[in-house]
Design a protein around this nucleic acid. Structure first.
Lengths: 190, 190
DNA sequence: GTCTATAAGGCGATAGAC
DNA sequence: GTCTATCGCCTTATAGAC
């Protein structure tokens, strides 16, 4: 039997570079020239691999969601207590969106509304991921509207991308502190 | 004594339009043509009032921070219990950043990194506002690192801009639910 | 203060050679 | 698959008339 060769991975190299640039500069400020320049290619050549700049973003976005889903599922595997699962999921989420690999960072950095022609599709990809969280939150049954709880949790988690520093708290520490703050009382008596 | 006439308010009209467009489309997608078109002016004319597009953003940003500070201070005035003050401040913050008026929305929508030449200045303006929160959090003394608490709180609050709808929960309800979730236990026993 | 006209450059994307 | 060359459009910003 013959070995099936991987498709030539030039497309993947382009995607890696695009992910990094989209994550660091945002979709509009990262240009086709930036992306091709980063992989020693000329601007026209990218259109052999992708039909448009938006098409590149969509591919990066999907891979980003795939990676964060994978990270979350890896972390919750085998964990049974619902709140421990929530903590594990938060750690998986945080590690993915703060990863230097950049793919998952793009799904936080680039908001669907930034690219109107792709907004519906990007939102759908995001929602697919958020439905994973719906289940996790429902199982933990927090004493607050579950929808708000999920939005607060992911909002707080994602905002870490604005202030996270490599020489500070680890993604794991941040995620754990976040779930703890929501699980246990941190406030004064009343 | 003569009445001092307000400076002609054409500049303010431009700022209003710019705030709305920056808030809705982001800095890079809102063009000078969009802004001047919205106030029936031609692109070149705006440079009589402002030296550059970035200069317009800076003015909008400062006014946005001024408004959210004002809103927060109005809400906490006279409230003495530290956690009640936190709730009041959150309501003020939320109402400002979800206001249709758009100025305060810009400080959430446009991230300092979006405009490198202004990044330091925008961050400084933001920090001035966040220091107000440092005091509020310190007074409430939550049983969690105060810096993380502030970042989680504002991160969750600001993310509401992505999912808030006029026909859903009010800014006040959202803010109250957020502080409650952090103040009281919502999790299971452990 | 606002206009006209345009400079100067960046952008995504395409056609066709190799 | 990649390159060369460039199209057509859009951008911020400016110079000078009014």
């Amino acid at each position: 039997m013959s070995i099936v060769r991987r498709e030539n991975n030039r497309s993947e190299v382009i995607l890696d570079a695009a992910a990094l640039l989209f994550a660091n500069r945002g979709f509009h400020k990262a240009t086709i020239r930036d992306i091709t320049g980063a992989v020693d290619m000329l601007p026209g050549s990218v259109y052999y691999h992708f039909e448009s700049k938006a098409g590149i973003l969509l591919a990066v976005y999907r891979e980003g969601v795939r990676r964060v889903v994978e990270s979350v599922e890896d972390h919750i595997a085998g964990v049974v207590d619902p709140w421990d699962r929530l903590t594990a999921a938060a750690v998986g989420h945080m590690e993915a969106i703060l990863s230097p690999t950049a793919y998952a960072r793009v799904i936080v950095m680039v908001r669907p509304g930034d690219v109107p022609e792709l907004a519906a599709e990007l939102t759908a990809v995001r929602d697919e991921y958020e439905s994973l969280w719906r289940g996790l939150v429902a199982d933990a049954s927090p004493a607050i509207d579950h929808s708000l709880f999920r939005l607060f949790l992911l909002g707080a988690a994602n905002s870490s991308q604005l202030w996270f520093r490599d020489d500070g708290r680890s993604p794991r520490e941040i995620a754990t502190a976040l779930i703890d703050a929501l699980r246990h009382p941190v406030g004064g008596a009343r």
